[in-house]
Amino acid sequence: LNSKGIWFTYVIFVFTMHLILLSLPFLSTAVAWTLTNVLHNVAAFYLLHIVKGAPWETSDQGKARSYTYWEQIDDGVQFTATRKFLTTVPIVLFLMASFYTKYDPTHFFINVSTLIVVLIAKLPQLHGVR
C-alpha cells in the first residue's frame, strides 16, 4: 500500500466506479454520489477491517493471521502516510457527496453514518480490539 502508484490506482478505481454509477440513466446525480460513497465505505470496511490475514502464505509463521489488513499496514505503526491517505479518502468522498446532494438531510444521514463507521474503525485506540 505504500508502493509507488497504488494511491493513484485507488483514486482511479473510485472515480471509475462513480462514472459507472453515473452512467446508469435511472440514477440521479445525488443518488450516484451517495451510492459511490456508501459502496466505497462498505468495500473499504470489509477489505480493511473485516478480512484478517493475507491471501498468500506469509513467512512470519502465521503472526499476521489474526490481524486485519488495516492493522498490518506498516507493521502496525500509527499515523503513517498510508494510513493518513486511507483515512482522508472517505472524508473527501463524503464532502463531495454532501456537496452534490445539495446537503439533502436524507442523503446526509446515510453518508455520514457510513463515514463514521469507517473512521471509528481506523482509530489507533481500536488497534487489535475485537
Binding site: L19, I20, S23, L24, P25
Partner: peptide, 12 residues
C-alpha cells in the same frame, strides 16, 4: 453493459 448504459445516458 457499462458502455451501452454510458452511451445511452449520454444520449439522454
Amino acid at each position: 453493459v457499462v458502455f451501452v448504459t454510458a452511451a445511452y445516458s449520454t444520449y439522454i
